[in-house]
Each structure stands twice: as C-alpha cells, then as structure tokens.
Write a protein that binds this DNA or RNA. Sequence first.
DNA 1: CCGTATCCTGCTTGATACTG
DNA 2: CAGTATCAAGCAGGATACGG
Lengths: 132, 132
Amino acid sequence: MDTNDLAGNVLDPNCPSRVVFQRIGDKWASLVIQVLGDGPVRFSELRKMVNVVTPKVLTQTLRALERDGLITRTVYAQVPPRVEYGLTDLGESLLQPLTLLRRWAESHVPTILEARDAYDDAQDEALLGSPN
Amino acid sequence: MDTNDLAGNVLDPNCPSRVVFQRIGDKWASLVIQVLGDGPVRFSELRKMVNVVTPKVLTQTLRALERDGLITRTVYAQVPPRVEYGLTDLGESLLQPLTLLRRWAESHVPTILEARDAYDDAQDEALLGSPN
DNA sequence: CCGTATCCTGCTTGATACTG
DNA sequence: CAGTATCAAGCAGGATACGG
C-alpha cells in the first residue's frame, strides 16, 4: 500500500531510513564513498586522500560501509599485503543523490555562513542592549 | 575558476560544505526540515510530530537551523505565548535534495538490512570456523 | 602494508525540574 | 505555551602503540 505514510516514516527516528542519513552525516563515510566513486583505492591511499585519518577510525568507517553493502573489500594474497576498497552497485547508486546534495552544499554554504554571522551579531547586540 | 577542485573540497573534513552533511546526519534537524516543508508549525506541535523529543534538544536543533538561515522563528505577542517555525527560502531549496536522498533511502534500505544480516552471519561463521 | 588494542576526551543526547 | 538550567551518560572520534 503506497499511502502517504512516507511522512510518518521520516518522523520516526527509529525508522531504518535514518541509517542512510546517519551515514551521510558520518564524518568520513560520505567522503570515502565519493572518493571510491572514481574507482578502487587501497587502504593506505585512502588514508592519505582523506586527510590523515587514524587507521582505527578509517577501519571502522570501512567496515560499517562494507556491512551495509555499500563497498567491497578485496584482499590480494601478496607480500606485502594489499587490500582494495571499491563501491558496490548499491554504493554507486548512492553517488547521485550524494552528488546532488554536495552541489547544493557548495552553492549555498556561503549563504549559510553569512546567516551565521548575522545571527551571531544579532545575539551580541541583544546582549549589549539588555545586559541585565 | 570552475576547476574540478570539487573533489579536493569534499575530501577536506574542514571544508564548510561539510556543515550541510552534518545537519543531514543530525538526529532531528533533517526531520524538522521535512516537517516544516508542509508549512509553519508551532513548537509544541513539532514536539509531538517528531516523536517526543525533549524541549531542550528540540530547541537546540531549532536554534542551530535558525542560525544557519534555514528556518524562521516567529513570536506572536500573545498570552499564552505562540511561536511558529517555518522554512526560509534557503530551507525550502534544501527540500529537494533532501527528498531525493529520502527516496533513495526508502527504496534501498531493505537491501542494506539484508546486507547487514549477510555480513553478520559471515562473521559468525568465521568465528565458529576458527575459534582459536 | 594493513590493520588491532587500549586508553582517553569532548560532544551529543537525554531526564528532570524550574521560569516568563 | 515555550522554553531554560542542571546534571548525568553514552558514544563517536582520536592519539598512541603494537601485531600478522
């Protein structure tokens, strides 16, 4: 039944849909996904590209994404070891909404920053006006 | 200059673009925005719709969104007090990418959940296979 | 090279109680 | 009605060091 209980879904913080939003908001997950959009990357490469994240945190991020079926982890039986991460089809399909969001972000962030300044200034003035 | 340093931007966790991603991932912010998409709502209504969030947390969320210029806060000088929250133009413009993301979420969440089960099962078996 | 183990800190979330 | 104040708890993120 395709009732419009979509709204009801979104409002429920326990709704599984929220796992996606949480991934997006995750500090590294969305970055990793977008990096992998250009093709498979090794662990150490990923570390460098994603601006020196500690191995523990990167591993956590990667495992979570792998568990969600968004990325693949391929181990090559070599010495020294070599592990490559890449997007699954599911992961690739996320690329588009992600890119759209990124474009929105990049074009509107200046406005947001201005709004913040204005808001903070207004707060300061209000405090000066009634210090007591 | 519209070089393709977009990639460079995304990889920088300090890039202001990330504030948007953080709002999306915020537990309540994206919910509030989508609720307000249907028109202005009062504080108490918001509390009920968004599944009993504590007033403190809701206020925090609302203030942050207001500071970012995404929502407006209108106080009606009445007794009892009445405060309505609504989307700004900026906030409305966020609705579209947000909806797209939500649609992706709702259509792919089952797959993600399956992937998780499969992953967890594989982990369990691996542990059973080599308990030592 | 690719991680894991341990410890630690700050922020987010929440419960509870109170005010204009 | 629409918040604020205070306190407490959990957990994501990180520094550092070590292992396969």
